[in-house]
């Protein structure tokens, strides 16, 4: 892998507020090859904003600036909105948090998945249908032809999320951004959904950015981890080295999590004063 799939240098996302502009992402840089990268942080750390800005999905008045932001040699910052639309879905796609809000309630599942494909590639109807059913099968939905005819409210949360994944992967993108893909799901279903993402991503040699607040989950499914705190990357490490994390924030997060075999009487609480410079609350 000589050239990375995604190169980001000095990404800043700014929102204006009554008290002047606030940087929610503060000049972060990272590169991504065809690998699985996890971005972890708490609410407000800027992890979702980072994911969205790659697809240029930050709405006004939010502002995205970067020294360099390239995807497979294409400069994302200079693309027109139209060119950007061709890229979204076809080459980079995104799985959102909650299937309840991201699926169209008045279209059947099959139509929605087909739409994702047809937008980027014209196909004969028969082939289209086959592709949709094959994709549903790939995300381990039993009886795909029945499910294709259902509406989103007729499927469970875990199934809805698998449908989202099917929709996002059917145009065969090079990069998948999954923003908290399983936090709306049950523990027992979480693992299934992530296994599916993992299989498809490694099988097709795609890049994956998994955004989550769950350190354990990310360390299980990713090769590399970025830990974000208040808009900055505080730690980068290999997933297997997470337990050797250096930064007090990362260590605090790991320690604050209850374990299955819990014998501590009290959980250590993050002492935010140890690394913040008095900024924020």
């Amino acid at each position: 892998m000589s050239t990375p799939l995604l190169e980001i240098d000095g990404l800043t996302v700014t929102f204006p507020t009554a008290r002047g502009p606030v940087d929610v992402v503060k000049g972060i840089s990272f590169t991504l090859g065809r690998e699985r990268l996890g971005i972890v942080g708490e609410s407000g750390s800027g992890k979702s904003m980072t994911g969205r800005s790659i697809l240029r999905l930050i709405r006004k008045p939010g502002k995205v600036t970067a020294r360099r932001m390239t995807f497979d040699g294409v400069d994302l910052l200079s693309l027109s909105e139209r060119q950007m639309r061709d890229l979204r879905g076809a080459r980079i796609s995104m799985v959102m948090q909650d299937p309840k809000f991201s699926l169209n309630p008045v279209m059947t599942v099959g139509e929605q998945i087909a739409e994702a494909l047809v937008t980027h590639k014209k196909l004969p109807r028969r082939e289209l249908k086959e592709r949709v059913l094959a994709m549903l099968e790939a995300v381990r939905i039993n009886d795909p032809s029945r499910v294709a005819g259902l509406y989103p409210h007729e499927v469970s949360g875990g199934m809805g999320q698998r449908i989202m994944i099917a929709m996002m992967l059917i145009p065969e993108p090079d990069l998948l951004i999954a923003d908290e893909p399983t936090s709306a799901l049950d523990v027992s279903v979480q693992a299934q959904v992530l296994d599916i993402i993992d299989d498809l991503v490694t099988g097709k040699g795609m890049g994956l950015i998994l955004i989550s607040h769950d350190l354990n989950l990310v360390s299980r499914y990713c090769d590399r981890i970025l830990v974000m705190n208040s808009g900055e990357i505080v730690e980068q490490c290999k997933a297997s080295d997470l337990h050797n994390a250096q930064h007090p924030y990362t260590r605090g997060l790991i320690a604050a999590m209850p374990r299955m075999n819990e014998d501590r009487d009290e959980l250590p609480v993050l002492d935010r004063s140890t690394w913040t410079t008095g900024a924020g609350t």
Binding site: E42, S43, H213, D214, L215, G252, L253, A256, M257, P258, E266, L267, P268, V269, L270
Partner: peptide, 11 residues
């Protein structure tokens, strides 16, 4: 809640 806040509430 976030993990760190969860720890506070559990305590």
């Amino acid at each position: 809640l976030d993990v760190s806040v969860q720890a506070e509430i559990l305590n």
